[in-house]
Computed example of a mutant assay.
Amino acid sequence: MPGFLQSLPRIGSYRSLPYAVASLAMAAPMSLFAFAVAVSFEADSRVRAVIAVVALAVLMGLLGLLGPVRRLGIGLANGLLGIGLPTPARRPDAGSRLRSGLWFALHTAVSGVLVTVLGFLAITMFVPLAWLTGGQDRISFFWNDVPLGAWTIPFGLAMLFVALVVAAAATTGFRVGATTLLGPSAAELAAAAEQRAAVLAQRNRLARELHDSIGHTLTTSTIQAAAAAELVEADPAQVRRALGTIEEASRSALEDLDHVLGLLREEPAAKEPTRTLAEVDVLAVRAREAGLDVRLTVTGPVAALPAAVSREGYRIVQEGLTNALRHAGPGEVDVRVEAGPDRLAIAVVNALPGERPRTGRHGLAGLAERVEALRGELDAGPDDGRWRLSATIPLRAGA
């Protein structure tokens, strides 16, 4: 209760009034039908007024069963009540339609009552003016003739306070009701969760693509450019070879970048880059030109590997060589690729001085996710003073 009273000075506590007016304006076309129903009954005016309100609420409830009307109601609630209901499904289920119909019936009836009560309270707040202006000394109040006097001032202030409380309470009620009856169903929540998961998966995929391809190229090119700068005068031939490697790697990176940008535009490139373990020797050549002493050993029918497995194998070797360049610097790197009948085994081992800490393991995390998706295992860590990145991917179920 103290929190409710503290909210009275805030203008947002009185959103119920414009919401009620908008609701009645939306119900105005149906009021003619409700009036026709009311006049068909033999009763006094008060009973007919109640019948008209009930009939209007029922008609609005039936109208609220329609999907477009539900969306309109959610838009009004978000805009006028300041709540954040999510965009509804284009085709709501039966439960959502029934809740929507119930809400339209309830808030139409409550809006009518609220506007009537606030209108009456507004009139009573002007009673002190009749006494202060001295225009009259008596007033008809609740069908009684009442003398005016000083009592009208506190009475007017009390009616103002009551009006504020009623409007603020109606705002709270409208917000709770709209959230409950117009809020998403379990099916809509599940669909929204799936959509968010799909967006996150796409973002993760783009991040992996950029890290695996562009990150590798930038690391190699940076080291090559730094080495070439030191050999400009001493070994021009080596500089030309380094620049040629940078050019070739940059072209490859442009293909990858075009593919990633195509994914962002939802217009994929005509041909997605599909580098496999059949090109692992190209990786080794580039790494050697960047200063690594790569000892590559490939055994087994690598060319016969499933495409998905071969692509991930290429990325694993690429990540291992990139990390060796970035964290360990020039030195020996042993790369073993073994394609057996039941599984693919890859190991990239390099020296890792103790004073050079490893950072930025996002690439390894992405690789682990992709290897797990192929029912494989990835392991990375120090092993006998060296850093080992190893992966095993089964080629057959149960392998």
Rank of each mutant, 00 (worst) to 15 (best):
Ala278Gly: 10
Ile123Pro: 04
Thr359Cys: 08
Met60Gly: 11
Pro341Val: 14
Glu188Tyr: 03
Val302Pro: 04
Arg97Asp: 06
Leu243Phe: 10
Ala225Trp: 07
Ala49Tyr: 05
Leu257Ile: 14
Gly61Asp: 01
Thr359Trp: 12
Val162Tyr: 12
Gly262Cys: 12
Pro341Arg: 14
Thr245Lys: 13
Arg396Lys: 07
Glu266Lys: 11
Ala89Leu: 12
Ile83Met: 05
Arg10Thr: 07
Leu59Arg: 04
Pro128Ile: 06
Gln202Val: 00
Thr116Ile: 12
Ile316Ser: 01
Arg10Pro: 00
Leu66Arg: 11
Gly101Lys: 02
Ala190Pro: 09
Ala163Leu: 06
Ile214Lys: 10
Leu5Ser: 05
Val162Ala: 15
Glu377Arg: 15
Gly135His: 10
Pro154His: 05
Gly119Pro: 12
Gln195Glu: 13
Trp143Thr: 11
Met125Phe: 07
Thr299Pro: 02
Gly215Thr: 12
Tyr14Gln: 07
Gly366Lys: 00
Leu218Gly: 09
Ile223Ser: 05
Gly73Cys: 10
Thr299Tyr: 02
Glu194Ala: 15
Arg388Lys: 03
Pro88Tyr: 01
Leu292Glu: 01
Val239Ala: 03
Gly376Ser: 00
Arg356Trp: 07
Leu59Phe: 09
Glu194Tyr: 08
Ala328Gln: 10
Ser111Asn: 11
Val298Trp: 01
Arg336Ala: 06
Leu257Lys: 09
Val285Met: 13
Ala227Phe: 09
Arg375Ser: 14
Glu247Arg: 14
Glu188His: 04
Ser390Phe: 01
Ile246Arg: 06
Ala187Gly: 13
Met1Gln: 12
Trp131Tyr: 15
Asp342Trp: 04
Pro86Glu: 03
Pro306Glu: 07
Gly291Lys: 07
Ser96Leu: 11
Val162Thr: 14
Ala234Gln: 13
Val47Glu: 08
Ala229Leu: 15
Gln224Ile: 14
Arg203Gln: 15
Thr180Lys: 11
Leu367Glu: 05
Thr171Leu: 06
Ala391Met: 05
Pro92Ala: 09
Gly177Pro: 07
Ser23Phe: 03
Gly82Met: 03
Ile139Tyr: 06
Pro88Leu: 03
Glu355Phe: 13
Pro301Leu: 01
Phe104Gly: 09
Gly398Met: 07
Ala228Ile: 10
Ala22Leu: 12
Glu255Pro: 00
Arg311Tyr: 00
Ala270Glu: 15
Gly177Lys: 08
Glu194Lys: 14
Pro92Gly: 09
Leu321His: 06
Leu81His: 06
Ala187Ile: 10
Ala287Glu: 12
Arg46Lys: 10
Leu264Met: 11
Ala150Cys: 05
Arg265Trp: 08
Val166Ile: 14
Ala158Gly: 15
Arg208His: 14
Pro330Leu: 02
Leu367Cys: 05
Glu377Thr: 15
Gly79Ala: 13
Met159His: 12
Glu247Tyr: 09
Leu200Pro: 00
Arg311Gly: 05
Glu372Phe: 04
Asp281Phe: 03
Ala22Ile: 06
Ala20Tyr: 03
Ser16Phe: 09
Asp212Leu: 13
Asp137Leu: 08
Ala237Pro: 02
Val260Met: 06
Val232Ile: 15
Glu312Ala: 02
